[in-house]
């Protein structure tokens, strides 16, 4: 199994941030993990490093329900420039919502690889890579 370069966890819930980080670290599927509480920061980072393939993450776990900028806004913004990125970043929505409407809405974003519901588990993580 190939190690993922870098995983971004985007979630405002500090507890969930820790949980996700620990669980992913333990599964050792990536070389690094970064945690963001603010989706805006992630957007800024991706825009900033859009020329540096190495600096870009291989995978993003994105929460939907966040203050200031939520997951939906992030997806809207990301859709605008993802074509210009030097590599394809896998994006998984990771939310506590089991609302079918949310799932359908996420399915509308073709660049989103999957819709995952919390809590994270070993099984889920093993399917990420």
């Amino acid at each position: 199994m190939k190690l993922l370069n870098m995983i971004f966890i985007v979630d405002d819930d500090p507890i969930h941030q820790q949980i996700a980080k620990i669980m992913i670290e333990r599964q050792a599927i990536s070389t690094g993990i970064r945690v963001f509480s603010d989706a805006q920061e992630v957007l800024d980072y991706l825009r900033d490093k859009s020329g540096d393939s190495e600096a870009l993450p291989d995978l993003i776990l994105l929460d939907l329900n966040m203050p200031v900028m939520d997951g939906w806004e992030f997806l809207e913004e990301y859709a605008l420039f993802c074509q210009q990125l030097p590599k394809q970043i896998k994006i998984f929505v990771l939310t506590s919502s089991i609302d079918e409407k949310d799932r359908e809405r996420v399915a509308g974003y073709s660049f989103v690889t999957g819709y995952l519901t919390k809590p994270l588990s070993k099984e889920i993580i093993s399917h990420l890579s």
Binding site: D13, I15, H16, I19, N65, S96, K118, L120
Partner: peptide, 11 residues
Amino acid sequence: LRAPIANLKAL
């Protein structure tokens, strides 16, 4: 309720 309960389970 789901968000924290999901955390609870994971933890």
